[in-house]
Design a protein around this nucleic acid. Structure first.
Lengths: 204, 204
DNA sequence: GTCTATATGTTGATAGAC
DNA sequence: GTCTATCAACATATAGAC
């Protein structure tokens, strides 16, 4: 069971890693250099231990990736199972999912970042991408329903809408940093307003 | 001097590559597997020639990347130097730049895709990222001016606005495919409308 | 939980023939 | 413009001691 993600989990004295603390450092390093460009040697150096010591905590580099991706996918999948994603108008459900996605994206930023950059080179990556696509599909369906409902504009192809919505939201991982000039709640609110109402001023 | 990018450039008989045709194939392969995950062996296989034959056309893997990134950066930088990006209201200039960026993104999709996925691991990558950031900065400044002008909403931090705008636009490379259900002109128009006016229907 | 060695394959790149 | 042969460096992963 994963511990709190707010702080590096363990890492008390100095080394003395457990799987969680290795995972947290690994994801940071993967995001900095890219998963493929990160060797177990580079990772070992960033952990301050030897390459072989990593294999005490995790059986392979691929498994390290799988564990990290799960940290993003589990909460993302949970959104779609929440009651608020399943009841109410399509507009309400859509907004709930968009807001929740932004929140998960920020709370688990390093893990989601890793997920969003996958290329599908290995079976592990392809499995993760399939799970991600299933999440995306739910939004695409809600966009169609919201258009039929009359709450979303009908002059734009629904697939284009849902893809641009995800593009907007997902880009947050590339620039949001905790402790920066904008709080997580502000990012959520601003992104939602921009997506729903646009950037034009209303008095025009 | 680069030739037309519409068709694979050369590749008449079968092999007989020149630098441009090697570059076009290379970028496709880089985007499929990721630059770092693509070995010269994989690339050679996709080209149908041997590894060493590639080195007749290009001195290194890094130089192949540099040439590809230039194909994206040159037209992106040209947008900011166009007269329409420098005259008129901030709103007009911003819309011109956004529309032009979407166009370049679609016209040079494989090259821009490569640029957008860089991690900055090598000097070549860092130089390209610097050039990209300079392009982004121009938009960020225009957003501030458009807010002062009164054409853009003032209740959202300008940095957040410009970053979400780029997030929306840049995501196009991940799903737009020529010959697909949506034309390039439609993508441009729809993305602009969504960014400026939002996805909400107007009669609410 | 960590280490030093080591096994085994793959990497980017070169030499030199055709 | 392409090839085969080759190399040193580096990759992931294992063995076994402390």
């Amino acid at each position: 069971m994963p511990r709190s993600l707010e702080q590096p989990a363990a890492k008390r004295g100095r080394p003395g890693y457990d799987q969680d603390s290795v995972l947290n450092v690994a994801v940071q390093v993967f995001n900095k250099y890219g998963y493929d460009a990160t060797s177990m040697g580079t990772l070992a150096h960033n952990l301050g231990i030897s390459k072989s010591a990593i294999y005490h905590h995790v059986p392979s580099k691929g498994e390290l990736l799988r564990l990290a991706l799960d940290q993003a996918l589990v909460p993302l999948e949970a959104i779609g199972e929440d009651e608020r994603a399943l009841t109410g108008t399509a507009e309400e459900r859509l907004e709930f999912i968009l807001r929740s996605t932004i929140r998960v994206l920020i709370e688990r930023r390093p893990f989601v970042t890793l997920l969003l950059r996958l290329r599908g080179n290995t079976e592990i990556e392809r499995t993760a991408l399939d799970r991600r696509r299933a999440v995306d599909r739910q939004v695409a369906e809600l966009v169609v329903k919201a258009q039929e409902e009359g709450s979303l504009r009908r002059d734009i192809d629904p697939r284009t809408i849902s893809r641009l919505l995800f593009g907007t939201i997902n880009s947050v991982v590339e620039w949001y940093r905790p402790g920066g000039p904008v709080t997580a709640a502000e990012v959520e609110e601003n992104a939602i307003r921009m997506m729903l109402d646009g950037v034009h001023s209303r008095n025009r």
